[in-house]
């Protein structure tokens, strides 16, 4: 993993104006993504985690440019695409594909699977003959573990897992280099989640894809990620290689999230204290001053309410945004 990163996100910001009141005036701004920076190397899988509403989907949509960022910079393969207009974005879209959370909403209910995949294939190369097209659709289906008979079905005749496979096949159809998967298994039965995760992992290895994998579930992230990024209220608060992160998180919020995932080892709870976060997530309309996490942080001190910690490099090259990062040796003892 060297050379230019495939994706570079620098100080990216996206606010949404919220209209309210009966005059329809502006009530405020949702700080959905606020000053987020990270790189993703080619072939890497970056896991992004955070509670509902912390801006994961907005970040995903910025990266695939379904949403235009307000500020900051977004580079793909060295090219600045932050504000690239839709028209000239089109050729690039084939290289960057989004996989959606809700596989029911992401497939057009009035189309057959063959039409859905065929339209995607046409966007890559419209000159292919009908027969070749059918063969290609069958190959795509096979690649995501579906029999060719699925071609003639409609989305509503498929299970959630099958639909998500079609969603993945559609993304693959245009030959992407980067896949942004926005909670691709959250809407699925637990029993099929692992199948889809394994499929994504296999495809990633087989095709050399770069993946940004978003989830609110650190258990799921662990399965797939090389590195883990943690988001809180629009901010990236920690970024670390996965093994180090799971062994010893540096941010108190990461620690709380990690303590909530079920451990495979039944005795683990003896050595590990579950940290229950007090209070609700503050409104993204008015994030707390100082450290955004201070209203819920068990380690908060006076400094935290007054000054916001910047994402900074710690020993070992890990990044964390906290005035009092958890020391490695302490993280299990506290």
């Amino acid at each position: 993993m060297s050379g230019t990163p495939l994706v570079r996100v620098a100080a990216l910001r996206k606010y949404f104006a919220v209209k309210g009141g009966w005059l329809g005036g502006r009530r405020g701004q949702v700080h959905a993504v606020d000053d987020v920076s990270f790189d993703v190397a080619s072939g890497e899988t970056l896991g992004l985690v955070g509670e509902s509403g912390c801006g994961k989907s907005t970040l995903a949509r910025c990266i695939v440019r379904l949403v235009e960022p307000d500020q900051g910079k977004l580079e793909f393969d060295g090219e600045d695409i932050t504000h690239r207009p839709t028209r000239s974005l089109r050729p690039l879209r084939r290289q960057i594909q989004l996989i959606f959370q809700d596989p029911f909403a992401s497939l057009n209910p009035r189309k057959r699977i063959s039409q859905i995949l065929g339209a995607a294939l046409d966007l890559r190369d419209a000159s292919v003959s009908r027969g070749d097209r059918q063969a290609e659709i069958a190959r795509l289906l096979e690649r995501v573990g579906l029999a060719p008979q699925f071609m003639d079905r409609r989305p509503r005749e498929l299970s959630g897992g099958q639909r998500q496979r079609v969603g993945i096949a559609r993304a693959l159809a245009v030959g992407p280099r980067l896949i942004v998967a926005d909670e691709p298994v959250s809407a699925l039965d637990v029993s099929v989640q692992a199948d889809i995760l394994n499929l994504l992992k296999d495809l990633q290895a087989e095709l050399g894809l770069t993946v940004i994998f978003i989830s609110h579930d650190l258990g799921v992230i662990r399965h797939v990620s090389d590195r883990v990024g943690v988001m809180y209220l629009g901010r990236l608060v920690e970024l670390a290689p996965a093994d180090q992160f799971y062994a010893a998180p540096l941010h108190p919020y990461s620690e709380a999230l990690l303590s909530a995932i079920p451990m495979p080892d039944p005795d683990a709870h003896l050595t590990r204290k579950e940290i229950v976060l007090e209070g609700d997530i503050p409104s993204p309309l008015a994030p707390p001053k100082g450290c955004r996490f201070h209203t819920r942080c068990p380690y908060a001190q006076a400094l935290c309410a007054g000054s916001e910690p910047k994402l900074s490099t710690q020993a070992g090259g890990r990044l964390v945004a906290c005035h009092f990062p958890l020391a490695k040796q302490e993280s299990t003892g506290r």
Binding site: R90, I96, Q97, F100, N108, P109, A119, L123, R170
Partner: peptide, 24 residues
């Protein structure tokens, strides 16, 4: 989301209207 998906694939807005929205 399926409209967003079409947009994300690089389909033109006119084509999206004709082939994704109209049938619905």
């Amino acid at each position: 989301e399926f409209i967003q998906a079409a947009r994300g694939l690089g389909m033109s807005e006119m084509r999206i209207l004709a082939s994704e929205v109209l049938p619905n």
